[in-house]
Write a protein that binds this DNA or RNA. Structure first.
Length: 497
RNA sequence: CGCGGGGUGGAGAAGUGGUCUAUCUCGGCGGGCUCAUAACCCGCAGAUCGCACGUUCGAAUCGUGCCCCCGCAACCA
């Protein structure tokens, strides 16, 4: 059996999750569920990134210890995954000393053994008010705009990672397709970034970065984010603790946002090469969500809480919106109006109503029982289904999930039109005509359900219940002899006023 | 010359060399149906595909220039 290992980024716990985190989770979840539906042994990993000076400061503001703070915020992320019906197999936390830290130590040692860690001086402009280094571009007339003070030039010892040594091999990995990037335009971006990437700082003095993992053999230094956070993809699978990771590594897919492409596209592969590990097979890069076409920001006060959304509309409507309205690899926009339009238009009117009308027809015209007989299965309909399935699969495999949904909905639209033109409710027509129409429509619903399961698992469950069968399991070509005991239920998606 | 994305009927999007006399959804108008969640189906109106020049037998689609919007550049997916 093929294995399929897919990850989300680990989320930074400086604040509770917003709709962007929900988007990432759902994209990865659909991909994972799709691969499970193909019969692959699939592992979906998500988790939280919990170290750093920023976390320590956030905890302090709340009057909490860092660990207490990260425990609390991390829980809101694992809760979010649960609420969104995300099928993650594990939830990794970088503060987990038993699960995660051994992997961090191991990769550090491996990189060091390759001779790729060296000491150097880091020189920067340090703002006392920020307790952090500032970039020149952040300053106005050489002065920190927030504190109106001139930052000091400070030199400090850091360990550096010899990233530059691997640039050539990384480039080859992209050119040869050993690492596939979707969409392709992002691969070009990585190559461009690669050109001017340099060695990166791999540690910080303890005094600047207390909340983190100490460098092995040098307590005065803390491991910087790269070796700490990126390593989660290995540590979660056992790296540093046991040999289980060899079964799963290399990762088949890292789902990431466009902001962290540089880390996953360059730094991470360099680390892996240095440690003598295989490179991930693909990166799926998604865009960002704006709210009413504005950047989401606390200052504007337009941050959308996905938990509230699910409470108000239900899981699947929220999943549907994120997957259908936001192009998987582009930026997209959120608004309540659009969400409600999608809900009423696509979910209630198109799909929900289709299921209702068919269920009722079977109840009243066929006494609630449909014996699926292949000879009543309309050829034209069969062809439509096959075409739709091809388009659907291609779209999912190209990580164009929004497009995959349009193909499913095209088929539902076709089904609604087919019912209208064949008028199965007319009492005076022959039984075979009625059977032919209904059989064909049920075939569409069965196929659509099967394809929809990775996207809207709860809805498919409900449709299955209506049809008295586990529709997910059926290939439409193997329906002959199946019996459907149909009971009309409450509307799948009650219309919103 | 920092990097990237984008500008397509009233709104939102798809389409990235010929199949585009440009597609879909919402909205508007008209009609049909009654199995269904006032749902469903059909039809109509509405777009010089940001602007200019160019390449080509042929451009929304490629090139150049310009205008405008948005993001990244700061450990926010």
């Amino acid at each position: 059996m093929n294995k399929f290992y897919i990850t989300t980024p680990i989320f930074y716990v400086n604040d509770k999750p917003h709709i962007g985190h929900a988007f990432t989770l759902v994209l990865a979840d659909v991909t994972a569920r799709y691969h499970r539906s193909l019969g692959e042994e699939t592992f979906l990993l998500t988790g939280t990134d919990e170290h750093g000076a920023k976390i320590a400061r956030a905890a302090e503001r709340q009057g909490e210890e860092p660990q207490q703070f990260t425990d609390r915020v991390s829980a809101t992320f694992s809760e979010l995954a649960k609420i969104l019906n995300v099928s993650n197999n594990e939830f990794i936390r970088t503060t987990d000393q038993e699960i995660h830290w051994p992997g961090v130590f191991k990769i550090w040692e491996a990189i060091k053994a390759s001779g790729d860690i060296y000491e150097s001086e880091y020189e920067g402009l340090y703002c006392v008010g920020h307790e952090a280094f500032m970039k020149k571009s952040d300053l106005q007339d050489g002065v920190c705009p927030d504190h109106q003070t001139k930052p000091e030039k400070i030199k400090e010892k850091n360990y550096f990672f010899k990233l530059s040594k691997y640039k050539k091999r990384i480039k080859e990995a992209y050119v040869s397709g050993a690492i596939m990037v979707k969409p392709a335009s992002r691969a070009n971006e990585v190559l461009a970034m690669l050109e001017d990437s340099e060695d990166v700082s791999f540690s910080r003095p303890r005094k600047d970065l207390e909340w983190g993992i100490a460098v092995p053999g040098d307590d005065a230094q803390t491991i910087y984010v790269w070796a700490d956070a990126l390593t989660n993809y290995l540590s979660a699978m056992g790296y540093g603790r046991n040999e289980d990771w060899q079964k799963w590594w290399p990762a088949d897919t890292h789902v990431i946002g466009k902001d962290i492409l540089r880390f996953h596209g360059i730094i991470w592969p360099a680390m892996l090469l240095s440690a003598g590990l295989e490179l991930p097979k693909s990166l799926l890069v998604h865009g960002f969500i704006t709210v009413e076409n504005q950047k989401m920001s606390k200052t504007i006060g337009n941050v959308i809480d996905p938990v509230e959304l699910v409470k108000k509309y239900g899981v699947d409507p929220v999943r549907y919106y994120l997957l259908r309205e936001i192009p998987s690899t582009e930026d997209g926009d959120f608004s309540y109006k659009k969400l409600e339009d999608r809900y009423n238009g696509d979910l209630a009117n198109n799909l929900g109503n289709l299921v209702s009308r068919v269920a009722k027809l079977i109840e009243t015209k066929l006494e609630g029982e449909l014996n699926f007989d292949g000879k009543f299965f309309d050829k034209e309909v069969r062809q439509k289904i096959e075409e739709a399935e091809q388009k659907y699969r291609r779209a999912v495999e190209e990580f164009r999930l929004h497009e995959a949904l349009t193909h499913i909905w095209d088929l539902f639209g076709f089904a609604n039109a087919h019912i209208d033109s064949h008028k199965p409710w007319e009492a005076d027509q022959e039984g075979s005509h009625l059977l032919r129409t209904i059989t064909s429509i049920v075939a569409i619903i069965v196929s659509g359900s099967r394809w929809l399961e990775p996207f809207l698992p709860e809805t498919v469950e409900k449709i299955s219940n209506t049809f008295g069968n586990n529709l997910r399991a059926y290939d439409v070509l193997r329906l002959a002899g199946q019996k459907f005991i149909v009971t009309k239920i409450e509307p799948l998606f009650p219309r919103l006023k």
